[in-house]
Design a protein around this nucleic acid. Sequence first.
RNA 1: CGGGGUGUGGCGCAGUCCGGUAGCGCGCCUGCUUUGGGAGCAGGAGGUCCCGGGUUCGAAUCCCGGCGCCCCGACCA
Length: 482
Amino acid sequence: MAEAKALTPRATDFSAWYNELIARAQLADYSPVRGCMVIRPNGYAIWEQMQRALDQMFKDTGHQNAYFPLFIPQSFLSREAEHIEGFAPELAVVTHGGGKELEEPLVIRPTSETIIYSMYAKWIQSYRDLPVLINQWANVVRWEMRTRLFLRTTEFLWQEGHTAHATESEAEEETLRMLGVYRTFMEEWMAMPVVTGRKTDSERFAGALRTYSCEALMQDNKALQAGTSHNLGQNFSRAFEVTFQTASGDLDHVWNTSWGVSTRLVGALIMAHGDDAGLICPPRLAQYQVVIVPIYRSDEERATVLDTAERTRKELAAAGIRVHLDARDGMKPGAKYYEWEGRGVPMRLEIGPRDVASGTAVLARRTGGKKESLALAGLGPALVAAMEAMQREMLEGARARREANSLRGATKDQFLARLESGGGFIYAGFCGRGECEAEIKEQTKATIRVLPDAEFRSPQVPDTCMWCGGPSVTEAVWARAY
RNA sequence: CGGGGUGUGGCGCAGUCCGGUAGCGCGCCUGCUUUGGGAGCAGGAGGUCCCGGGUUCGAAUCCCGGCGCCCCGACCA
């Protein structure tokens, strides 16, 4: 019976473990429509926490939220040649409305560059109107062939920032600033270390000049692209005639950026931190940071224990902790432990008759270690400190795991061997030729995740291409990826 | 769209070969006893057996035709 209640172990079947965890923690469910998912309250709560943190970071960097429509005239997509080419196969198209066939089909946005820059064309006249710094929280639709809950679904939620600038260097600065914001969010909130860098042309966003991304390593040693930031150059401003008059009176096209992260981050969180007992949510993102489980036998015990538990709950809430008292009757404490562990709650407080008598509570950390008895007096600050420590340790642990699963300066043989023996990030020299990149992808299914930013580069960058032996122009990070 | 699998109470399955009118586990409801790591007992609710046709006295089961879903390959945050 115990077996039936446990998740498939991560080590046995990572993908089964992932799916079962989501079902068990009630994060999401499959929808009647193929490839779509229903985000259940427990899953949505995580997304809300992410939104809250990111939204504040966007505001702090000068951005405002706005909302653009779901429907885009089909002709808009084809204005930017590379863009339409990139998205054509995965578009959902509306051909009928109000019982009639539409004169022009409407595309359901796969992303909003076209509709947004068509509006910017109206709003921007002068360099005094720049920069325009707008973000929107929205759903988008991409008709994917193979889907997985959170990681790739036909419809997903995300934010997309779209900015317009007077110069290329300002646009580049913005692109990198937002990449940095993502990195900070992933490290500081998700406790998930990432490698940042530039994408190769083959992995570049359709219509962008340059694409940068944050790449995270999951516990099965596959890479996950967790966030992207694009310098769009003047590709869209030319297509949509977004022009402005410069201080010297010339007419110029604006320089655009766009950047986004999606509900995929929930999947990243699961795969970065989950264990065989379920999700492990870092304290800063947890809907409930602390759950109190009362323990009692008789009705009298129940009354006194619940009284103490409720007073403790109020105290912790007053200390700014997101706390929940699980007072459900007719459920054994052990069953509650398993349930909250599955949902990833960082801290559990057990309060029973013995604790009431001694003015203590038992603390269990989701990340493991011995249970600990803490005095009820001063519990708030103690838990805040414990959570800060957990947040830090989770990041450090994940970073250590990533480094342990990164191979630097790989030769071709080492590269091939590593892919077979577990994967992870593989750093090696790269000649920069698309032919090499494509051949590697075809033969090994490994792709260049990024050309890493300076701080992630190896101390000694290889001078030959790992694959063809030609001169290396840069170091690249390869991995098999989601 | 190719290759493989599978459709039976909410979920997971048995029953199909060899036709006889549907069962098990979990979950759910009620009651009592329980509660410091997934409770026990008793009673109970719940099923067009994917759909359509055919064979037969009789079809979850046999035959024909559809459809859905899952896994593997070509696309992708």
